Simulated scan of single mutants.
Amino acid sequence: MSVAPKTPERRKPGAVFRVLAAVVVPLYGWFAKIEIRDAHKLPADGAFVMAPNHHSEIDPLTVAVATWKIGRLPRFLAKESLFRVPVLGAALRGTGMVPVARGNQGSQALRQAKVLVENRSGVIVYPEGTLTRDPGLWPMRGKAGAVRIALAGGIPVIPVAHWGEQQYMPRYGKLKLWPPRRPVTFVVGDPVDLSDLADRAQSRAALEEGTERVMAAITALLEELRGEKAPEQRWDPAQHGQAETGRM
């Protein structure tokens, strides 16, 4: 496992992060033995947008634990209303989660990007927006959230892929406690080049093009992990009469 050197962000995590890590990392270790590949490709310092695939309800824990082990603090987007819930709101603020509110997506992305750049921190955004509906668990059509934030702040998008969680938490299935420590692989990809889209960051065409580049990069990483090719046609929930709900 290649691991990036400790960063100023990692050396001074807040108390909430330290408590969560002390509980979650060893607990999740019961279910998964995570192998991390190409950890050096995640920036050791500065802002980033991490874009992972999403095929199991439990895989946010894989992403969070792997990100922590690499040396960066795992932060996700969270609905703004959750920040007003007692206890939960304090935990979200204490771990620096990034609020998502209803409203103009362009201006919201600009605010989110500004916070990331100022704090030299990262955010994890699932570009599919929800669990993949693809029958083979391949990445489906993406949403523009990750690219919108990245273009708003000139922040790199880092594609990642992971595979193995379906062994103990199948999509829409029940958590399996035995056997423990199933192998899960987490691989970090090269930043997705969006430089040619920067001058038209708010256009729908640019956001769609950037999102497809991100989804293609994630899919290529997952093909590497699975040792097989993804379907040529990406699954599109809109064309299969399935609602898209969940994360941005």
Results as ranks from 00 to 15, higher is better:
residue 74 P to E: 01
residue 226 R to G: 05
residue 48 F to Q: 00
residue 77 L to D: 10
residue 198 A to Y: 14
residue 7 T to V: 06
residue 132 T to S: 07
residue 188 V to N: 03
residue 238 A to E: 14
residue 49 V to A: 08
residue 89 G to L: 07
residue 234 R to W: 11
residue 60 P to R: 10
residue 56 S to M: 06
residue 58 I to G: 03
residue 64 A to H: 06
residue 88 L to T: 10
residue 102 R to C: 03
residue 212 E to A: 12
residue 43 P to F: 11
residue 27 L to Q: 05
residue 206 A to G: 04
residue 147 V to P: 00
residue 235 W to I: 04
residue 154 G to F: 11
residue 106 G to E: 12
residue 173 G to E: 07
residue 201 A to Q: 08
residue 10 R to F: 15
residue 241 G to Q: 09
residue 94 G to Q: 02
residue 169 M to G: 04
residue 131 L to Y: 02
residue 169 M to I: 12
residue 136 G to K: 14
residue 59 D to Q: 05
residue 15 A to T: 13
residue 245 T to P: 02
residue 237 P to H: 09
residue 9 E to K: 06
residue 233 Q to C: 11
residue 79 K to E: 12
residue 13 P to V: 13
residue 195 S to A: 06
residue 22 A to P: 02
residue 179 P to W: 11
residue 233 Q to E: 15
residue 25 V to G: 04
residue 26 P to H: 04
residue 240 H to V: 14
residue 115 V to N: 01
residue 53 N to Q: 11
residue 181 R to K: 13
residue 104 N to Q: 07
residue 76 F to S: 02
residue 178 W to R: 11
residue 43 P to I: 14
residue 174 K to I: 08
residue 204 R to N: 12
residue 63 V to Y: 04
residue 69 K to L: 14
residue 22 A to I: 05
residue 140 M to K: 05
residue 68 W to T: 01
residue 203 S to A: 03
residue 49 V to G: 06
residue 226 R to S: 08
residue 237 P to Y: 09
residue 52 P to A: 12
residue 4 A to R: 08
residue 17 F to G: 11
residue 210 G to M: 00
residue 79 K to I: 09
residue 130 T to M: 04
residue 159 P to A: 08
residue 187 V to E: 07
residue 179 P to E: 14
residue 6 K to P: 13
residue 176 K to T: 15
residue 72 R to P: 00
residue 200 R to S: 14
residue 95 T to S: 10
residue 63 V to T: 10
residue 240 H to A: 15
residue 64 A to M: 11
residue 64 A to S: 12
residue 158 I to G: 00
residue 168 Y to D: 02
residue 74 P to D: 06
residue 68 W to R: 13
residue 18 R to C: 13
residue 18 R to D: 13
residue 179 P to L: 10
residue 93 R to L: 12
residue 60 P to A: 13
residue 142 G to W: 03
residue 44 A to F: 03
residue 220 A to K: 10
residue 232 E to N: 10
residue 134 D to P: 11
residue 218 I to W: 01
residue 206 A to P: 00
residue 241 G to F: 09
residue 61 L to T: 12
residue 171 R to I: 01
residue 178 W to M: 14
residue 44 A to P: 06
residue 58 I to N: 05
residue 68 W to P: 00
residue 22 A to F: 13
residue 199 D to L: 07
residue 204 R to C: 07
residue 228 E to K: 14
residue 65 V to W: 07
residue 182 R to W: 04
residue 210 G to I: 00
residue 107 S to A: 15
residue 151 L to A: 03
residue 10 R to H: 15
residue 204 R to I: 10
